[in-house]
Design a binder for these strands. Structure first.
Length: 664
DNA sequence: GTAGGGTTAG
């Protein structure tokens, strides 16, 4: 207490020298002489002290730094700071998020307090947690509070400490320590504290500990926060059945519950289930808010569910959910339109937003990349910098992918080089993207050099990019070497064997190709099954190779043979070169090829979707060369647009050609 | 102070 009120204390507060003048004018306006003395009754609701009023007001709406300093000055010169209550309020105000104060300023006031109360300690702890430092710092503060001894910690204290110790980096030890302290202070029955501990264990990844706490609590004592915390954490950890089990059992659900469960499905790629749940939620009278919509939009984006996505767009506009100012909602919507093939609508939505953060820009850049607009992506990147938005690693990934899709080799090299100018360190993925770009362009040696020279150990994904390039450019020597390395890295991935087998087969090395087939059998691995989705009438229809489970199967196969006849008239010949030589004769190969999932999906689209509407197909793997030629011709013969999103990018087939210009 | 959200990775 010794230094407070002296010039020395003032100087300890950063910025005071330059702004004191403004503080003094504030003082003149509100003369200290007129201020009543502070007494314990001054905290009452009937006639709170005027400075306390100002402090409360300040807490509600933070003002300029000069005002904050003036307030401090006023509290100081009127002697108010000698009383712990207003002093603690000042610390609180200085630490508020968004306040113009700073930690050093607050610390100076805090250090001057004789025995801060629990409220003040909590304010300091909260600020510490907000800063997100190591958990040890928060725990240290907690132990300082305990050893100061004047005030015992309360529920808030433990909620804060638990929050600070809930990152995945925290071990069992820290979690147990916090829990132990809660028990020691007799706080374990307090529901806020229990919920905080559950949240902490979930955050650390110790779901069983959280569940134990949950199960030990009598049902009547649990609140929706307890349930929702568990549901959300199970969902995030990949245990959808456990999440759903609790969701079905909970006595009363609120919007958070539906939201957490929906997102659990989305996080585990159960997109159709997410849509089902979303519809059920509305059936029960819950009005979705922006957060729920973001989850559902993500599901729509993955499924290519444009109708549902458009409905959400309309809903968000009608209900004023702040599309233009909520960058998260904006990004989800833009991404959905991009992934459903509607780049121009995505651009419109993007242009209509005015609170654009880095992710929103990234989404738009990746969207352009996906659609093969390399130059457009580079142009958007230029605009992004003009707006003063700082690019991050994902931004550069988007740009590299954009370059890759259109073969902008020089721009790609320059992009990777320029990352250091933006203080972004290239990661494996960046080198992989560049290798992919160089490989596609036929610069196989340079691509390999990029992978070998990267400062970290290359992984299968990077070698895989090179392997695809070897296949594309029929480089058997490099393909064999890289292919074998890949198989040794990931012996369980069937795709690796298939790729090498194809490289051998194309070089006429049939015996080696068959050997790959045998190796696959020995390892008991299978190739991932191709699967395509089409949306029709608001429902997603799914097809796998040779699928006969769809209700319209008869019509679809009839359509396929009709289509094939028409194709043959324009000179179409099946391209079997990309098929694994697992089948004995050419005839079997041709049949297998005829029933690739995207062909079934296209036939379904021709039957059901009106000519003015594009047929939109989402495929889990990459489109094979034969299906690509097929789709081009079909788009001409049937005068329809076909939009195929494969694992890598978009193909817009129109009038016999594709937007990728056969570069993919 | 305790519950739900967006990009990318070949």
């Amino acid at each position: 207490m010794a230094t407070i009120g002296t010039a020395a204390a003032w100087r300890r507060i950063p910025g005071i020298a330059t702004t004191a003048l403004s503080g003094l004018s504030f003082l003149n306006f509100f003369s200290t002489a007129a201020l009543p003395p502070f007494s314990s009754s001054s905290t009452g609701t009937t006639s709170p002290h005027p400075i306390l009023n100002l402090l409360q007001e300040e807490a509600r709406s933070p003002r300029r730094r000069a005002d904050l300093l003036a307030l401090h000055a006023l509290a100081l010169t009127s002697g108010l700071l000698r009383h712990p209550f207003p002093a603690s309020r000042l610390v609180d105000v200085l630490l508020r998020p968004g306040a113009a104060g700073d930690p050093a300023h607050a610390a100076a006031v805090f250090d001057s307090l004789d025995s801060p109360d629990a409220y003040t300690w909590n304010a300091v702890l909260a600020a510490q947690v907000r800063r997100g430092g190591p958990p040890a710092d928060a725990l240290g503060l907690y132990f300082r509070m305990r050893s100061a001894g004047a005030q015992p910690p309360d529920g808030y204290t433990f909620a804060l400490v638990a929050k600070a110790c809930s990152s995945p980096g925290c071990g069992v030890g820290i979690g147990r320590e916090v829990h132990g302290q809660v028990v020691k202070c007799g706080m374990e029955a307090l529901l806020v504290v229990r919920n905080s501990l559950m949240r902490m264990y979930c955050g650390i990844g110790l779901l069983n500990f959280a569940r134990q706490l949950f199960d030990e609590t009598p049902l009547s004592c649990l609140d929706s926060i307890s349930w929702n915390t568990m549901i959300s954490s199970y969902g995030k950890s990949g245990d959808v059945p456990a999440a759903r089990g609790l969701f079905d059992r909970m006595p009363s659900r609120n919007l958070f519950s539906w939201s957490a469960m929906t997102d659990g499905y989305v996080a585990n790629a159960e997109y159709s289930q997410a849509l089902v749940l979303f519809n059920e939620m509305q059936g029960r009278g819950f009005r979705p808010d922006a957060v729920v919509l973001v989850s559902v939009l993500k599901a729509c984006a993955h499924l290519g569910a444009l109708d549902q996505g458009r409905w959400i767009h309309l809903y968000a506009e009608r209900n004023k959910l702040g599309l233009d100012v909520n960058p998260v909602l904006g990004a989800a919507l833009v991404d959905m339109y991009c992934k459903c093939g509607y780049l121009d609508v995505a651009l419109q939505v993007f242009d209509a937003t005015h609170d654009r953060d880095v992710v929103l820009w990234n989404v738009m850049i990746s969207g352009l990349a996906m659609h093969g607009h390399g130059k457009g992506a580079l142009e958007l990147f230029r605009r992004m910098r003009e707006h003063g938005v700082v690019p991050n690693g994902s931004t550069f990934l988007g740009i590299l992918r954009a370059c890759s899709h259109v073969g902008l080799v020089d721009e790609g090299r320059e992009t990777l080089r320029s990352m250091q100018d933006h203080h972004v360190k290239p990661q494996r993925e960046h080198y992989g993207c560049l290798a992919d770009l160089l490989g596609r362009a036929g610069l196989l040696e340079e691509a390999e050099e990029v992978i070998r020279a990267m400062p970290m150990e290359p992984q299968a994904a990077q070698w895989g990019a090179l392997m695809s390039a070897c296949r594309m450019h029929k480089n058997v020597e490099m393909g064999e070497r890289i292919g074998k390395h890949l198989i040794s890295l990931e012996p369980q991935d069937g795709g690796r064997y298939v790729l090498l087998a194809n490289v051998y087969a194309e070089a006429g090395r049939w015996e080696d190709a068959r050997e790959m087939r045998r190796a696959m059998e020995e390892m008991g691995v299978k190739k991932e099954i191709g699967c395509s989705f089409v949306e029709w009438n608001g429902t997603i229809h799914e097809f796998i190779v040779g699928d006969k489970s769809h209700p319209q199967t008869g019509k679809i196969y009839a359509m396929l043979s009709e289509m094939e006849k028409k194709l043959q008239m324009v000179g179409y010949v099946k391209d079997t070169s990309q098929l694994l030589i697992e089948m004995g004769n050419e005839e079997d190969k041709e049949i297998a090829l005829s029933y690739h999932s995207e062909k079934l999906a296209i036939a379904f689209g021709i039957i059901n979707i009106g000519r003015g509407t594009p047929i939109r197909v989402v495929k889990n793997l990459r489109v094979c060369r034969d299906c690509h030629t097929y789709a081009k011709l079909i788009s001409k013969i049937y005068r329809t647009e076909i939009i195929v999103r494969d694992r890598n990018r978009f193909h817009l087939f129109r009038d016999g050609s594709c937007s990728c210009r056969d570069y993919w």
